[in-house]
């Protein structure tokens, strides 16, 4: 079985993102870029499945300009077998990403597709669900546990009510939540080795899909700030203050 993992190059999660003063976008000049953290968890999960002997190959794919090869190489250094870059300079909205993902799935015929539940830039939380709907295959979103057996996946999902378990037939689309695993650190020799692993570049036009960027962003603004309040000295002072405000 092959596993297809989709990853996105995003601003590193440690970067405090700010809106440009003119409201035209957020300021990403010179900031550190990384694999979307949820996607890194997706890579790790795929590798663990392969290491358990339940999959033969882990293919990692990303959509973007040549810069995203950096993140694909990192995924290869983690242990993925080969990489695919769908080359595209435009920022795509989730529906288009999902359509590309379906094309790749049709070409590669993976038994499992794993991707992050959301990218930490757009915070859309849509691509996995859209891909599953368009591919006509099951989805298991927000996964915190994943087990494979007999052509099925049993997935524990982090939902508002607690932990929900579902069983899906393979092939299926799984989106990762934070507690699925802790991604490994990449070792230097692996980075050297990753340079020789195959990375195929496919122009977006070759996939013959219609691009649906039908939402348009008019402006960006910083969020309203909460003001710093008052300090009290002890529990008694806190209770008094809450009573003064009519909260107790």
């Amino acid at each position: 079985m092959k596993i297809l993992v989709l990853i996105k190059r995003v601003v590193d999660y440690n970067v405090r993102v700010r809106v440009k003063p003119d409201g035209s976008n957020v300021d990403l000049d010179g900031v550190k870029m990384s694999i979307n953290p949820f996607d890194e968890i997706a890579i790790e999960e795929a590798l663990r499945i392969k290491e358990r002997g339940e999959a033969e190959e882990v293919i990692v794919a990303s959509i973007g300009s040549d810069e995203c090869q950096q993140q694909l190489r990192t995924a290869l250094a983690m242990g993925a077998d080969r990489a695919i870059q769908v080359s595209c300079d435009e920022a795509l909205q989730p529906l288009s990403v999902a359509k590309i993902a379906v094309k790749l799935a049709q070409q590669e015929e993976p038994g499992l597709v794993i991707l992050g539940k959301q990218a930490i830039d757009g915070d859309n939380n849509q691509t996995a669900q859209m891909m599953a709907a368009l591919w006509g295959r099951p989805q298991a979103t927000f996964a915190s546990k994943l087990a494979l057996a007999d052509g099925k996946a049993t997935v524990t999902r982090e939902v508002d009510a607690g932990l929900e378990t579902i069983e899906v037939d393979l092939p299926a689309v799984v989106s990762t939540d934070l507690r699925l695993n802790e991604p490994r650190f990449v070792k230097l020799p692996e980075i050297m080795k990753a340079k020789r692993k195959p990375l195929a570049k496919i122009p977006l036009a070759d996939l013959d899909i219609s691009i649906e960027n039908n939402l348009s962003v008019q402006s960006y603004a910083p969020p309203p700030q909460r003001e710093r309040g008052i300090m009290v000295d002890d529990a008694k002072g806190l209770v008094q203050e809450l009573k003064n405000r009519g909260l107790l």
């Binding site: 601003v11 405090r16 993102v17 957020v26 930490i120 915070d123 008019q218 603004a221 969020p223």
Partner: peptide, 8 residues
């Protein structure tokens, strides 16, 4: 977007 650091 960006964990609430920007509103579009």
């Amino acid at each position: 977007i960006y964990a609430g650091n920007a509103i579009i």
